[in-house]
């Protein structure tokens, strides 16, 4: 499994991660190596195996639909890089 630099750029775009241009080749090499390592899985026939999602095969617990949290907007927004009037600010998205 060998990833091209174009494929790495595509994945980086999907994952919303900027990679420095001069590092793309190194990433392509490392990621290809990891995928080769992972490829060992395909040697085994698993068509009859049920996938395991939880070690204890536990079902997801449900809770009653009740309000249990109090409003802590100010506390949480104290960590935000840019807020105004309780709103998170981002660059304009609508022309």
């Amino acid at each position: 499994m060998s990833l091209s630099t174009a494929e790495v750029n595509k994945i980086a775009w999907l994952g919303r991660i900027a990679i420095d241009e001069d590092k793309i080749e190194a990433y392509a090499r490392d990621l290809s190596g990891i995928l080769d390592f992972v490829e060992q899985m395909s040697a085994l026939d698993t068509s009859a195996v049920t996938p395991m999602a939880h070690p204890m095969d536990q079902a997801q617990r449900l809770r009653p639909d009740q309000v249990t949290e109090v409003d802590q907007r100010e506390l949480f927004q104290a960590n935000a890089p840019l807020v105004e009037a309780g709103l998170y600010l981002v660059p304009k998205v609508i022309e």
Binding site: M41, P51, M52
Partner: peptide, 14 residues
């Protein structure tokens, strides 16, 4: 090919 396959192998390991 990847995630589902890995979850199956997880079962075999378990």
């Amino acid at each position: 090919a990847y995630y589902l396959k890995a979850q199956k192998i997880r079962r075999l390991i378990s």
